[in-house]
Design a protein around this nucleic acid. Structure first.
Lengths: 156, 156
DNA sequence: ATTGAAATTGAGATTAAGTTGCAATAAGAA
DNA sequence: TTCTTATTGCAACTTAATCTCAATTTCAAT
């Protein structure tokens, strides 16, 4: 944890930005969470714990953390930009269950390698990539079977 | 083109929905385009050509086309939901150039296969997936080299 | 062809996420 | 400690998308 504080401080100092209490609170909150989150959730968490930080500051801090290489945007669920931290966590891809919203993380070296190859073929210099698979997790598949029919888009 | 009209009509009829002139106009516009588009663009195109269709109808029709399996959402650029048609086009993945916005489409059977394998391993039933690689295309890499430095996030 | 239930339309109001302007404040280098 | 410059909070604003509702249209059944 103190490591990420140092990294962030360093990032800020190098471009003449300031390490404020607000930014520190956001940073620590982000790294105390161990799953995906979005700006509003983060704000609510802090608000409940009487950390009086404005929404604007939360929204302004998250992009800084992205640029500092500490967090990254993930798959966008229902309209909100969602983040996760990447420091000491490494890149991975996601499966997102349409039924219950559960997120499964996975990593495949083979897929990573294939992507690089393809980029090379197109003369494309990759900066980041995102692979998201939507579908149904084991549990939700069972539920669906029990209901026999998916009520989502059935025919008349 | 007439094929997609039939498919859409069929989709609608089967669930007691109606094939209206507005929906037809949207459908035809979508399939006359040959690249990615978003709801607002589509509305503007139609508006300029004096097709008086409300924004609401455009926004209401696109999800129907998705459900009918004719179009799909793609990578979200700058906040807007973007679509592309898939009928007679097949699944593919994308590279998105950060420099100029160009989209390169590609498809890798190997990656597709690996994804299926991974899903099987997790007992996950995939419905759709999206792989997007952001980076710099050949041309933009050259431009960057000429500028010697990327002005985006440089240190002081 | 007519009818009538049910779906659809357009216009504008509304929501939600995120951004911005600005005056007051605070960080931190000198 | 001083002083320049960045940051803050608030509220107003923007943007994308959705919703409400009265008027209209579709289309299956006469």
């Amino acid at each position: 944890m103190e490591k990420v504080v140092l990294i962030f401080k360093d990032y800020l100092r190098k471009r003449g930005l300031k390490f404020t209490p607000e930014r520190e609170v956001v940073l620590r909150e982000v790294f105390s969470l161990h799953k995906h989150f979005d700006a509003e959730q983060l704000y609510q968490n802090l608000y409940k714990r009487k950390k009086k930080i404005s929404r604007a500051s939360v929204y302004r801090t998250l992009p800084l953390l992205v640029r500092a290489g500490l967090i990254t945007e993930t798959l966008r669920c229902q309209g909100r930009t969602s983040y996760e931290h990447i420091f000491g966590h490494g890149h991975h891809d996601h499966m997102l269950c349409i039924g219950c919203g559960k997120v499964i993380e996975f990593r495949s070296e083979k897929i990573e390698k294939l992507q690089k190859e393809i980029c090379r073929k197109y003369g494309f210099k990759p900066v980041e990539h995102r692979l998201g698979i939507k579908g149904y997790c084991r549990e939700c598949q069972k539920k669906i079977k029990m209901k026999k029919k998916l009520p989502l888009d059935r025919e008349k």
